[in-house]
């Protein structure tokens, strides 16, 4: 992680115990405080639930994604409404919707996490560098960001996917390579504020190197913002990927929730088979809302109390 810069590792006594590293400490503190709030608890539990599904979903699913269910008479069970055997019914072509829901958690979680990670990596690299270094570097990086702001996401994604080939990973990359723009902008402005604060100047005046200042002072102080953008990035990737799936430019054989909705719609029976389209829709909606709310409350809680000078009594 952001432990230290290699050159300086020779003076690294005390940080060997990673559990005591301040970044981890801060994260733990914020998490602890967050879980005190009941609503945040609900969002967090839901996200943990989706992640767990992503891990074990395919194993606990009663049927395989490609198992077509036949009734006792050997006929395919097409569009069967929910029943005890099939809690969410079956699809037009006889897949078990419940199993597909369980299996679909994994690609959804993967796209969210991967998308979020790429977004925040690019966003914080660009934003923090631009904000801290300033001058020409900042100009170039921020104009680049503006340029990306001019890109209409969905049409561009369709074009790019057509270019690189329809695929699950491709769709995530295309989304992430556009969506980092928001975090870059906000992180830059955060850094602009922080770098003028006196503890940064004091550190500079002591002779601390720029990379070290960025890693030790700047990054930890924008980390809560970064966590928020990561969470929002996760949400956005999931929902936009679902949109792209719906438009049919995502690999239809990766059984994500978005693809399920697309298939339900494409069957022409979406009005009849509500059990096919509504559950993945709800899961996507809940997941996305949970990531947004989780990000916001992390930012609110861990950003708030720390640097609020007015709260502290002098003396």
């Amino acid at each position: 992680m952001l432990n230290r810069i290699p050159i300086l590792s020779r003076v690294s006594e005390g940080f060997s115990n990673a559990g005591n590293h301040y970044a981890i400490r801060n994260f733990r503190n914020a998490l602890g405080k967050m879980l005190d709030s009941r609503m945040t608890m609900v969002y967090a539990s839901f996200l943990v639930f989706v992640l767990l599904l992503g891990l074990v979903g395919p194993w606990i699913a009663p049927y395989d994604a490609t198992d077509r269910i036949r009734g006792e008479d050997g006929e395919l069970l097409r569009g069967e409404p929910p029943s005890l055997d099939h809690p969410l019914g079956t699809t037009e072509v006889g897949y078990d919707v419940f199993s597909r829901m369980l299996i679909g958690a994994r690609p959804t979680a993967i796209s969210g996490l991967l998308g979020g990670t790429i977004i925040i990596t690019i966003g914080s690299l660009v934003g923090i560098t631009a904000g801290y270094v300033g001058g020409r570097t900042e100009n170039v990086l921020m104009r680049m960001t503006d340029l990306v702001y001019g890109v209409p996401l969905i049409p561009t994604a369709i074009v790019l996917i057509a270019f690189f080939g329809v695929g699950f990973i491709q769709s995530i990359l295309v989304i992430a390579f556009v969506l980092w723009r928001g975090s870059a902008r906000v992180l830059r402005s955060q850094v602009l504020q922080i770098k003028e604060r006196e503890f940064i100047l004091a550190s500079k005046a002591t002779g601390t190197s720029t990379p070290r200042i960025i890693m030790k002072h700047i990054f930890p102080n924008v980390a809560t913002m970064a966590v928020m953008f990561f969470a929002i990035g996760v949400g956005y990737t999931i929902i936009i990927q679902a949109g792209l799936s719906f438009l049919g430019v995502v690999d239809p054989f990766v059984p994500s929730w978005g693809v399920m909705m697309r298939n339900a719609y494409a069957s022409g029976q979406v009005g009849n088979y509500w059990w096919w389209s509504i559950p993945p829709g709800l899961m996507i909606a809940f997941t996305v809302v949970s990531t947004f709310m989780f990000g916001r409350s992390y930012e609110r809680i861990s950003g708030g109390g720390d640097d609020e000078g007015a709260m502290v009594q002098a003396g």
Partner: peptide, 21 residues
């Protein structure tokens, strides 16, 4: 209120100059 990094303990703050030098 601004001259100490809010994310640093006193130890972290004092250690930094020692490490840098």
């Amino acid at each position: 209120f601004n001259s100490l990094d809010p994310k640093f303990t006193v130890r972290d703050t004092l250690k930094e100059p020692l490490q840098v030098h």
